[in-house]
Structures are given as C-alpha cells and as structure tokens.
C-alpha cells in the first residue's frame, strides 16, 4: 500500500517538467522516508537524481519499499491535467501494474483520478561518491538560465571557470565569442539574489550547452541554483525543493583527447 498526498501539487508538476525531456522513463523508488529517482539520459552524458522526502507530504504512507517504472512523458501528460492549485495524491497497491494520480481542487468540488500503466525498466543504479568540490557557485536560478540561453545562441559548449575574480561562462562559435563574468555579490536585498562563490582551488571545465539548457527547465522549482565543480568529476547543478529535497543534474565534462 502506497499513498502520498502532496498539498502543493504544482511541485510535482514542475519536477516532471524539469526532467521529462532528459529522461524517457525511470524507476521511482518509494520508501518510508520519501521517494527518489535516479536515471541517466539515453547517451549516458547526464544523470538526474531526484529526492522528495516524506516530511514534505501532508500524508505519506509506504508500507514496504517499492519501485515503480514510469514513462515520464506519459506521467507528465497526466500531471498536466492537474490544476496548479490542486492537491495531488499518488496511490499504488502491491503487485499492481498501475499507479493512480488523484487530483483534488482546493475547494474539493472537483476530484479526478488518472490511472497510469507502469512499465518494467531495467535501469542500472550508480553510486555517486561524496566529493569535496574545488568550487561551488550559488546564484539566482533565473540568471543561470539566462546565461545558458544567451550562450547557446553563440556556441555549443560553455567553459565555466572559477577563480578568485569570480565565475566566468565562455563560449565560441562561428559568429564570434562570448564571455560573461559574475562576481561574488552578497550585498543584495534578498538572499536568493546573491551570487556566492566558494573556491578551494581554481577550476575550469567544458560542458555541452544543450544539456545545461535542459537542466534550466528546473528553474521554477527554486530561486537559486548551486553549481559544484571538480576537474575529475561531473558538474552538479542542484535545484533545492523547499523543505522537501532536490533535483540534481550531473553532467559529464568535455575532456581533451
């Protein structure tokens, strides 16, 4: 028996919108502490890790650990049928080959249930090691999205360099080059507008902008984004989901031959 009631149903809608274009289908792993998902894109260049903790749900019941394979495109189609103010409940029964999404309007005058077929997914689970990163940049998520979009109109890859001067995003393409430098800025009215650069050692890495732009679909989930880099590891682009968990995107770097 599985029953999860999320009053802020729009969060789940936003989560799906942020990952459905990167990953076609994935296993959702439910346990008593919450649910998680880990999946690579089809080319194994990027990995998404999602965590939603049980504390964030108004009601959370998961009698035994269970894994449900879902097509994210189909799940997104169903969740799009929920209103932004709707309460969403996820229900499942042991051994069933379907999952039910129930949508309740805030005034309880409209109740809908959508039953979705589950699928068997043979996915490999990767161990993500704890790491000390050379540099961690926390910045407004809208600013990061703007930079990735702007640079993608010039080039295909971005070089992200962190020095004590700041963080530099650079690209080059047929029409020319672009460099955007952000300096640490903590003298802002609202903490979410700050750019905070923690640097243990300078780092410079190259990434495909196509993936970075895909990650920025998570922008509605959080006002801030955290970018963690070490030369020998995939970059981590993390959007925290208030008091519930996170969506983390890992992107393998482009490396010199």
């Amino acid at each position: 028996m599985l029953e999860l009631r999320l009053v802020q149903g729009s969060l789940l809608k936003k989560v799906l919108e942020s990952i459905k274009d990167l990953v076609n289908d994935a296993n959702f792993d439910f346990s008593s502490s919450g649910f998680s998902l880990q999946s690579m894109d089809s080319s194994h260049v990027a990995l998404v890790a999602l965590l939603l903790k049980s504390e964030g749900f108004e009601h959370y019941r998961c009698d035994r650990n269970t894994s449900m394979g879902m097509n994210l495109g189909n799940m997104s189609k169903m969740l799009k049928c929920a209103g932004n103010d709707d309460i969403i409940t996820i229900k499942g029964d042991d051994g069933s080959d379907t999952v039910t999404f129930m949508f309740e309007s805030p005034t309880q005058d409209k109740i809908a249930d959508f039953e979705m077929k589950l699928m068997d997914i043979d996915s490999e689970h990767l161990g993500i090691p704890e790491a000390e990163y050379h540099a961690i940049v926390k910045m407004p998520s809208a600013e990061f999205a703007r930079i990735c979009k702007d640079l993608a109109s010039i080039g295909d890859t971005v070089v992200i360099s962190v020095t004590k001067e700041g963080v530099k995003f650079s690209t080059r393409g047929d029409i020319g080059t672009a460099n955007i430098v952000l300096r640490q800025n903590t003298t802002v009215d609202k903490p979410e507008d700050a750019t905070v650069i923690e640097m243990n050692e300078p780092v410079s890495m190259t990434f495909a902008l196509r993936y970075m732009n895909s990650f920025t679909k998570a922008t509605p989930l959080s006002n801030t984004v955290t970018i963690s880099m070490s030369p020998d590891l995939p970059v981590v682009v993390e959007y925290k989901i208030a008091e519930m968990g996170y969506v983390r995107f890992y992107l393998a770097p482009k490396m010199e031959e």
């Binding site: 194994h44 260049v45 482009k254 031959e257």
Partner: peptide, 14 residues
Amino acid sequence: VSKQSTITKFFNKV
C-alpha cells in the same frame, strides 16, 4: 579537440 565523456566513466554501478 575535446570529447564528450560519459557519466559511467566517473560513477560505478552499485
């Protein structure tokens, strides 16, 4: 020339 690496180069299966 830089080449796109993959996640599995860095993270192992568990």
